[in-house]
């Protein structure tokens, strides 16, 4: 477990160094943030919105300026200040709930993403159709736990009705065979089923022990 976790962390670090954005399905990226914050300049927030508040958080981490001062700036100014102060340092922005991104916030995140030294590690957990702009941003990410996603959203063939029909036909044949063999055989089956019903009723009445 530890080895697999470390291997994943090494893989994540390698992907980040290659300029790859990473996406997790149904996972809190805080765990990843706590492991990577010693190696990279990292910012974590749970929700990507509201965008201005998030930009203030990021700029505060980079510049160290007070939030009261940053609050006075407009969103384009904050973005510009962030990019200027970051210089050539590599920064990773972590957030959950990628699916909550809106068209307006997308423009800002796209602008940040256009910088070579800003990377994203995000997560989503709701199977919601994304609009084209958000989806184009989503396409820049690499889904890390693809197996988990596929397991939950895999295509499957439900053969319930075929199974029901098969079992029913088999039971009809069994019943006819038993019925035609001897009357007492049906009595045996009936008696055992009757005992089963009594037994189940007693379990139901008595409750789980």
């Amino acid at each position: 477990m530890i080895i697999s976790c470390c291997m994943k962390l090494l893989q994540i670090q390698a992907d980040i160094r290659n300029g790859q954005n990473l996406m997790f399905y149904d996972k809190n990226v805080y765990e990843c943030f706590s492991r990577l914050k010693t190696n990279f300049l990292c910012v974590f927030y749970h929700d990507p919105l509201p965008i201005k508040v998030r930009l203030i958080d990021i700029t505060h981490v980079i510049t160290g300026q007070t939030k009261t001062f940053l609050n006075r700036l407009a969103v384009p100014d904050l973005t510009q200040l962030l990019v200027e102060k970051l210089q050539s340092k590599t920064m990773i922005i972590f957030f959950n709930h990628f699916e909550r991104l809106t068209d307006r916030s997308m423009q800002i995140y796209n602008q940040l993403n256009s910088q070579d030294n800003i990377h994203f590690i995000c997560s989503f957990n709701v199977n919601k159709s994304l609009n084209s702009e958000v989806y184009s941003f989503f396409k820049t990410f690499k889904l890390v736990n693809k197996d988990v996603y596929e397991l939950k959203h895999k295509n499957e063939i439900n053969v319930s009705y075929a199974v029901y029909a098969g079992i029913s036909i088999y039971c009809i044949v069994l019943y006819l065979k038993t019925g035609f063999s001897l009357t007492s055989a049906t009595m045996v089956i009936g008696g055992i089923w009757f005992a089963l019903i009594i037994f189940r009723t007693l379990i139901y009445a008595g409750g789980r022990l």
Partner: peptide
Amino acid sequence: LRTKDFVCF
């Protein structure tokens, strides 16, 4: 041939 799972219920 196909990796799709056959399920019931």
